Amino acid sequence: MNPPFLSIYWNENVEESFLDEDLVKKNLELILPDIKPKFLKSMELDILIVSDLEMTNINRERRNINRTTDVLSFPLFQEFPPLPHQMIGEIVISLDTCKRQAIEIGHNNIDEFYRLLVHGVLHLFGYDHETSLEDELVMKKKEDECLAKIFGEDNGA
């Protein structure tokens, strides 16, 4: 696989970011071959890191829900026609919510960020946890596999 073209944006209103763009890209390149269809040779993916205030605005504008959330995915990927290069979509992550959830769940910010990122990527490729218990279990299993690959072990995230 050609490495995906990956553009990552840190919004200027998000301070004290603990993220390393190069490491995020490397970890995505590690897990994407196990998620993407074989025909997809290269891809583009936008990741937007925002504050809770910005996430609330995006959630309201795009989903008509007037509150923040942890991660949103806006898929553009299509299986047919099977194009070898695609913009697969956009993932928006609230860094404020990420940090809060890390404390609530009891793991660190990096673990929570990757849990949200993997969750968002899976949604871009059609994984869904809201349609049925079976789909939820399939998505959770794939999430765990991806996180184990990123962290080199099953971290229970």
Rank of each mutant, 00 (worst) to 15 (best):
E16M: 10
L83H: 07
P82C: 08
D135P: 02
K142P: 09
G156F: 09
L23F: 06
C98Y: 02
K26L: 09
L124G: 04
F125C: 05
I150P: 09
S7V: 13
K149P: 09
V121Q: 00
E29G: 11
K99Y: 10
I35H: 04
L124S: 10
K26G: 03
E145A: 14
F5A: 14
L83S: 04
R62L: 15
P33E: 11
G120T: 00
E130T: 14
L45K: 06
T131H: 12
E79L: 11
L133T: 09
W10I: 01
T68W: 11
E44W: 10
M55H: 12
T97L: 09
L76W: 08
L19G: 00
I110F: 06
E16L: 12
F74D: 02
N64I: 11
E15N: 04
I150Q: 07
F80Q: 12
V71L: 01
I88N: 03
D111P: 01
S17I: 08
E16R: 14
L76Y: 07
A157G: 08
D111I: 03
I105S: 02
P33F: 05
I93D: 00
T56C: 12
H107W: 15
E134W: 07
H123F: 01
S51C: 08
L28F: 06
L30T: 15
P82Q: 10
D22K: 15
E136L: 15
E112I: 02
L76F: 13
E90L: 15
S73E: 01
S7G: 06
D144F: 08
V24P: 08
I150R: 02
I88S: 04
F18I: 09
E12R: 12
I49G: 00
E12K: 12
D70Y: 04
E145W: 06
S42H: 10
L124P: 10
I105L: 10
E44N: 11
V118F: 07
R100S: 03
R100K: 14
K99H: 08
S7E: 14
D52K: 11
E21I: 12
Y127L: 07
T69D: 00
L30G: 07
L122I: 04
I65V: 15
S42Q: 12
V50L: 08
P75E: 08
D52C: 10
I93E: 00
E21P: 07
D46C: 07
T131G: 07
L19C: 03
H123D: 01
P82D: 12
V50C: 04
E134Q: 15
N13K: 14
N109Y: 10
E136A: 15
L116Y: 00
K25L: 10
N2Q: 14
V71R: 01
V121W: 00
F39T: 11
P75Y: 07
N27Y: 05
D20T: 07
E79P: 02
L147Q: 03
I93M: 03
D20F: 03
M43I: 08
C98M: 06
P81M: 07
G120M: 01
E90W: 03
S51M: 09
E16G: 06
R115N: 06
N59I: 06
E112S: 02
R115P: 00
D70E: 13
Y127F: 13
K38E: 15
I8F: 01
I91V: 01
S94T: 00
L117K: 02
T68Y: 09
G106L: 09
P3H: 06
L6T: 03
K25T: 15
F18L: 06
